[in-house]
């Protein structure tokens, strides 16, 4: 399964599409992509996670890192997360810090 990460910035909106498994062996790939994105000072961060099948705490830490670097003014969207991913976010209290949507733009 491993991980595939693709990103683009369109009119200050950063969009990252994440597919596969986000665990301790793959999270650095997303971390690097997020670091690249941050340098472009996006006003919104959109994570397409419909095909993200597994996310461990290593993945959560990248989301926390992104939020901390971008600041509270930058909204973080998760597009179509799978039920188990939402459950992990809920369990760790991160659900309040992200906006879950069925598509972006809403």
């Amino acid at each position: 399964m491993s991980l595939s990460v693709k990103s683009e910035v369109i009119e200050n909106v950063a969009i990252i599409t994440i597919e596969g498994a986000l665990d301790s062996s793959t999270a650095s790939q997303l971390h690097e992509e997020v670091q690249k994105i941050i340098q472009q000072n996006p006003t919104e961060l959109v994570l397409n996670v419909e095909n993200l099948d597994f996310m461990a705490s290593a993945g959560l830490r990248v989301i926390i890192f992104a939020k901390q670097k971008l600041g509270s003014a930058v909204k973080l969207f998760l597009v179509k997360p799978q039920e188990q991913v939402v459950e992990t976010l809920r369990m760790t209290g991160l659900l309040f810090s992200v906006t879950i949507v069925d598509k972006y733009p809403e």
Partner: peptide, 23 residues
């Protein structure tokens, strides 16, 4: 307290062990 903090103010760490216990 940590879990209630906004994401931007949270210390990172300890999440993995919490997930092991809770799941």
């Amino acid at each position: 307290v940590d879990l209630a903090l906004p994401l931007e103010e949270r210390p990172i760490g300890g999440l993995g062990i919490m997930l092991a216990k809770e799941n």
